[in-house]
C-alpha cells in the first residue's frame, strides 16, 4: 500500500491531479491510499509553496502544476511500496 497526498486548497487543478494519480495507479495495478489535503496549516507544515503538490510516502515529489501522466507514471513506479 502506497500512501499519497495531494496538497491544494481545493481548486480544479488539485482535483485533476488526484484523478490522474488514481488512473495511473489503476493502470499499474498499484494499491494506493490517496488523501487530499486541503487544510491550510497542514499544507504549510508540509512546506508546500505552490499547489497542487504531490507527496508519495510523505515526501514531496512534485509541486506547482498538474503533473503529466508520464511524470505520474514515473513517480509511481519508482516510489511505490508493495
Amino acid at each position: 500500500m502506497t500512501t499519497i497526498q495531494v496538497y491544494g486548497s481545493g481548486c480544479k487543478n488539485c482535483a485533476t491531479t488526484a484523478e490522474r494519480i488514481l488512473e495511473v495507479a489503476n493502470e499499474l495495478s498499484l494499491n494506493v491510499d490517496l488523501e487530499k489535503v486541503t487544510d491550510l496549516q497542514k499544507i504549510m507544515a508540509a512546506g508546500v509553496l505552490t499547489t497542487p503538490a504531490l507527496a508519495i510516502e510523505g515526501q514531496i515529489k512534485h509541486s506547482g502544476s498538474v503533473p503529466s501522466v508520464d511524470l505520474v507514471r514515473e513517480l509511481l513506479s519508482k516510489n511505490a511500496v508493495a
Partner: peptide
C-alpha cells in the same frame, strides 16, 4: 487559489 499557500 495558488496565492494562499504561497503567502503562507
Amino acid at each position: 487559489c495558488s496565492s494562499i499557500p504561497l503567502f503562507m
